[in-house]
């Protein structure tokens, strides 16, 4: 392994932090979902690095799981965001909390 594991961990940590900052600060549900994805991927990155470091497949299997879960999560999350947008006309997370839900137009 050419790249030392500590560098991998540092990169994963930086990516995780960027995802976290994105999740906390953006005022857009889509961008928040994006932040979550980035955090998941940062975790996956750390796992892949670890599987290389210890020469074990467990970490890569775990990363595959994470990618699957993230894909499912994105689809469900995006569906929810579309739903929210339909009901409130906004993708602002604060607005969805405070605005009174309109009557379903269906």
């Amino acid at each position: 392994m050419i790249v030392p594991y500590s560098h991998v961990l540092a990169l994963a940590g930086i990516v995780f932090l960027m995802g976290m900052v994105c999740t906390v600060t953006r005022r857009n549900l889509i961008m928040i979902l994006l932040g979550l994805e980035i955090m998941l991927n940062a975790g996956a990155l750390a796992l892949v690095g670890a599987s290389l470091r210890w020469m074990s497949m467990d970490g890569q299997a775990m990363a595959l799981f994470i990618i699957v879960v993230a894909a499912a999560e994105v689809s469900v999350g995006l569906a929810l965001i579309v739903c929210v947008y339909r009901r409130t006309g906004s993708v602002d997370p604060n607005f969805t909390e405070t605005a009174a839900p309109e009557k379903p137009s269906v």
Partner: peptide
């Protein structure tokens, strides 16, 4: 504040 992001921040 009821803002989901604040809660997240606290959680983190």
């Amino acid at each position: 504040s009821g803002m989901i992001q604040h809660r997240l921040l606290v959680l983190f």
